[in-house]
Design a protein around this nucleic acid. Structure first.
Ligand SMILES: NC(=O)c1ccc[n+]([C@@H]2O[C@H](COP(=O)([O-])OP(=O)(O)OC[C@H]3O[C@@H](n4cnc5c(N)ncnc54)[C@H](O)[C@@H]3O)[C@@H](O)[C@H]2O)c1
Ligand SMILES: NC(=O)c1ccc[n+]([C@@H]2O[C@H](COP(=O)([O-])OP(=O)(O)OC[C@H]3O[C@@H](n4cnc5c(N)ncnc54)[C@H](O)[C@@H]3O)[C@@H](O)[C@H]2O)c1
Lengths: 231, 231
DNA sequence: TATATATAGAGAAAAGTTTCTCGATTCGCT
DNA sequence: AGCGAATCGAGAAACTTTTCTCTATATATA
């Protein structure tokens, strides 16, 4: 059950739990469209390779309640996770940097199902300004702060090259934007009231290549069979 | 200092450390090109908002050694992290799904600096097969397993729609691919010897919208001042 | 209706990660 | 050369997250 701090939103959710909630959500949406009505932590755990107790604890953070021997209503879970993550209401967002990655994000309609609607793009390249990308207008970067204020935009997405990221972030802060999703591999300096999340695109890659390199090493070591190399 | 298990690569690195190493790397590469020769954990910690002790412990995993009062050689750190992550050798990779996201990845030359070279793309769409995207040839999906074996490809990237992801993964496994970077929001079923990393693109978004939703709630609560709403 | 069983939920224990503390080392300065 | 300050490195302590254990409850079955 929840405690007082929970219901006031004062306790912070564990990062690992927050990382898993979108995975549950995805999975549960699939179950839902497959017509499944109830689901147990045991089954979720099996399907997602997670410990059932952990699943139960994670889901408890959303305030959902289940029935012994039965499990949870799938629709309850979906709704509660949506509420918890703020995906039941759409955030309008501005994107800066209408390049390769920016265009891919602009053309991803599924973000709407995750509470995100990119309403306009901003760029400095005169060749891009004025054009439409996936139906979204590309506007001059300089107009971002004014428009953001006027439209009450709270979320900004940065997909410009690293060298331009800080400047863009400053524009966003100036426009009253409160949260930034940053795809550029740099640490942004912003006032502490602004929430920044860096997309750690290299993390997965690091994990993969580290594992591959280790595997390869083991194979080589097997070939050498018993020779220990110092330094 | 290292213990025996470490030097044999038997201890597994903490996930949080692995997540931070690419961030250090990025930062250190910048220092390097700015001409900085030595750096201390204290400074790194300040610049990246991390505890200096944690930085020291993280870096120790790569086997680097520093000098008291001075710090580490930047070039040492860069080289050791590269080695540790396997970014000093380039992995050739195949990408399946030459759509919006796939094209963005194909057009990102910086992956080479992180040990990754995407050498070809694969797709089912006849309109795409045969074309070049950012200089990379798009080939029919069916040819993936054969080519992967012939070229000894060990890494695969999946950027197809969720419904097609499992099929593509099966093709990759069939082609002897050992590690998969999966951008489709589904859990893949593969033999346990194959390493899969799912790009958790929604995690950052979840963190942001959750925080925004909470902020908004607090603002609304302030307006209501004292009224507690049940459900 | 009684019994067996699967599962939620709560709390305890274990494992993992971060932060603190302290001694050793190096460098710059007097 | 000696002294003080900065920093590394190692181990301990504090904190967080995961896993285990137990109890209560709902359902199905005999
Ligand atoms: N493409 C990928 O696969 C990928 C992968 C990982 C990280 N990233 C990061 O994402 C960011 C974008 O990558 P990309 O491949 O889309 O680059 P890109 O060069 O294709 O696009 C960058 C866009 O930003 C615009 N731009 C440059 N300076 C600007 C400024 N000051 N204000 C506004 N717009 C500006 C450019 O005109 C261009 O349209 C980079 O920081 C990159 O490191 C990209
Ligand atoms: N675009 C984004 O910003 C974004 C963000 C998050 C996640 N994703 C995920 O990345 C994946 C790709 O997204 P996208 O926007 O590039 O989609 P897209 O529709 O633009 O591209 C998908 C590509 O895959 C190809 N394809 C379809 N079935 C195939 C098959 N069986 N074998 C080979 N190729 C096949 C299509 O022809 C197309 O070229 C999706 O799973 C999506 O959920 C994308």
């Amino acid at each position: 059950m929840e405690n007082a701090a929970d219901s006031k939103g004062l306790t912070t959710i564990p990062e690992p739990t927050l990382r898993r909630l979108p995975i549950y959500y995805q999975y549960l949406r699939n179950l839902e469209s497959a017509g499944k009505k109830v689901i147990s932590c045991t089954t979720i755990g099996n399907d997602l390779s997670l410990d059932p107790t952990q699943v139960r604890k994670d889901l408890a953070h959303t305030g959902v309640e289940g029935k012994p021997k039965v499990g949870y209503m799938v629709s309850d879970l979906v709704r509660k996770i949506e509420e918890f993550l703020g995906w039941n209401k759409i955030n309008a967002a501005f994107l800066a940097g209408a390049g390769n990655l920016g265009s891919a994000l602009l053309g991803y309609p599924q973000f709407r199902e995750h509470g995100l609607s990119i309403v306009a793009a901003f760029d400095r390249d005169p060749a891009k300004v004025g054009s439409l990308i996936h139906g979204k207008r590309v506007l001059p970067l300089e107009t971002l702060p004014g428009l953001a204020r006027r439209m009450g935009i709270r979320l900004g997405i940065i997909t410009v090259p690293p060298a331009a990221a800080q400047e863009v972030a400053d524009f966003m802060v100036q426009g009253g934007i409160q949260a930034i999703w940053n795809f550029a591999p740099v640490m942004l300096k912003v006032p502490s009231s602004i929430v920044v999340r860096n997309e750690e695109l290299y993390y997965s890659l690091a994990a993969l290549s580290h594992t591959l390199a280790k595997k390869l090493n083991v194979e080589i070591k097997k070939g050498e069979e018993g020779y220990a190399s110092s330094n």
